[in-house]
Amino acid sequence: MRLPTYALALVAALALTGAPEPGPRVSVDRAEAKPGEQVLVRLTGWPGGTVLIELCGADTPARCAVDSSAQIHLPASGGGGAPLAVAVPPGGCPCQVRVTTLDTRLSATAPLAVTGALPPAGDTARQAATRPPTVIAAHLERADSWTAYFGAPARRTLVLRLRNEQSAPATVAWSFSVGRGPDPTGFVTPPEPDEFAVGEEREIRVPVTLPALAVGDYQIHGEIVTAGATSRVTASTDHQPWGLAGILGLVTIALAAVALRRGRGPHPHVS
């Protein structure tokens, strides 16, 4: 009779403590693919936010097919998926699909066999930059249409000028957000991951949309990530929908006038 008692106690303990939460996981819809094909990458157990999906060699340090990488934004539930174009990494295979958060604190992999992908003869790992390109200048451009002054979404363009001052190419991933206060959470579609050649200076333009009925001050935050190192950019803007305010003012005056006329009522008749 003691065995059921112990079993009940174990079940009760698990109910109180809870099962351990699974870490971030990656799975691929098939085990093998050819270059030029697409595989579906499924993600579970990740924190909400932007992640980078790449096809990389299994060696250390891993060399990845940067041109075919994908970047997606996961909801708070931590689940999602995206197609990934298959391309042979510079170091050849064996290969694996690697997913990382932009701050590189979390990473997970899943193996993928790439048909016909062999390491090039005499291939050596190239040198890579260890920090993001330097931000030379940053400013915001307004791109509002007249409808924005009547409550429609307002538009800005964050213009960055970057220069790679290192002696190796810099592979760059991006993350941007917009909103009120010092920690904005509104998602901004980032540019595709890119690479800056040695000494290259380039202008990057990031379209930003303020929400409908936006009023007051807004913050735009950006992160430029290379090899786990992050450079941050912050810009401020404001929006005042004067047209909408004018319409509301006219409606208020009209309603006040109607109320005043009703309050006076008809003049009394004297005979």
Rank of each mutant, 00 (worst) to 15 (best):
D144K: 02
Q96W: 10
Q219G: 03
G48M: 15
H73W: 07
C64A: 07
T115S: 11
E223C: 00
D29Y: 06
D238H: 12
T147Y: 12
F176I: 05
V28H: 04
Q166V: 03
S68Q: 03
I136F: 02
S167R: 13
A58M: 07
P207I: 12
L248Q: 10
H269D: 06
P153Y: 02
P266S: 08
A257H: 14
R205D: 03
R42G: 04
S175D: 11
A254L: 11
R163F: 00
I224K: 08
W242T: 15
V206M: 04
A82K: 14
L14K: 08
G228S: 09
L84A: 00
G78M: 10
S177W: 01
L112I: 04
E37A: 15
A33G: 14
Q71E: 11
L112Q: 10
T101C: 09
L255I: 05
G91V: 01
V172G: 01
A125R: 15
G216W: 14
V28R: 08
E141C: 03
G249A: 13
T157G: 00
R156W: 00
G179D: 10
L260D: 05
G23C: 14
G79H: 10
V188S: 03
A154T: 01
A82S: 13
R232T: 15
P169F: 04
A125P: 09
P190H: 09
T130K: 07
T17L: 15
T237A: 09
P83F: 06
S236E: 09
L52Q: 12
E203W: 02
G249E: 13
I53K: 10
E203M: 05
A15Y: 12
P211F: 08
G179P: 09
A87P: 00
Y149E: 07
L16C: 14
L55Y: 00
L106I: 07
T44H: 13
A70K: 13
E195K: 06
S175Y: 04
A245P: 01
A259H: 05
H239E: 04
C64G: 04
L43D: 03
G18M: 14
T230P: 00
T17V: 15
A212Q: 12
V178R: 02
L160W: 01
G18D: 11
V39I: 06
E195Y: 00
A113G: 07
G18P: 05
Q38N: 14
L213I: 04
T115D: 12
D123M: 08
R261F: 11
T130A: 10
P35D: 13
T109Y: 02
G181Y: 10
R2K: 13
V159Y: 04
